[in-house]
């Protein structure tokens, strides 16, 4: 088991980027895809695609992020890739509907972002479950909605 107690750095950092580039040519970079729901954990245990058991225990003031380099030496590296997050964009048709939507989203403890006149809801389960709640709350009235993935919503 490989114990990781801090993040080495960001893969975009020029010095790390150069080293990773060399290792990538030798297929020596192990990339762990971490589900979005697990990215906030300070401690977790994961198995890399190459089969290594990795025990991550970060200090409380550190967090995982997309591109976090967990381990690197001359032979290999382990890098985090955050699973792409999905968002539901809701476009209320009036101020009244927007207020009502905001009220319900708060009551449901949905994780949200604001974008102009749209409310973006992070999907932590099937989109159908969110549509079911909305249909129930809005008694069949339709709210314009679009499904987005991480980069489009960023």
């Amino acid at each position: 088991m490989l114990h990781i107690e801090s993040v080495v750095g960001d893969r975009a950092d020029p010095a790390l980027h150069r080293r990773l580039h060399h290792l990538e040519h030798r297929h020596a970079v192990d990339e762990i895809v971490i589900p979005r729901a697990d990215m906030d954990r300070r401690r977790l245990r994961v198995t890399t695609p190459k089969g290594e058991d990795v025990a991550i225990a970060l200090p409380r003031d550190q967090k995982l992020f997309d591109g976090a380099v967990l381990y690197i030496d001359d032979e290999r590296a382990i890098v985090v890739r955050a699973e792409v997050e999905r968002w539901l964009r809701l476009q209320p048709s009036s101020i009244a509907e927007g207020i009502e939507l905001g009220y319900h989203a708060g009551n449901l403890h949905w994780r949200v972002r604001f974008e102009g006149e749209s409310l973006l809801i992070a999907l932590e389960g099937p989109a159908e479950a969110y549509y079911a709640r909305l249909d129930n709350l809005f008694a069949g009235r339709r709210i314009r909605s679009t499904l987005l993935t991480g980069s489009a919503a960023a």
């Binding site: 107690e5 801090s6 300070r42 401690r43 225990a57 970060l58 200090p59 409380r60 003031d61 550190q62």
Partner: peptide, 9 residues
């Protein structure tokens, strides 16, 4: 001191 992992919670 290098950052130290804290107790599991």
């Amino acid at each position: 001191a290098p950052p130290r992992a804290s107790a599991a919670r």
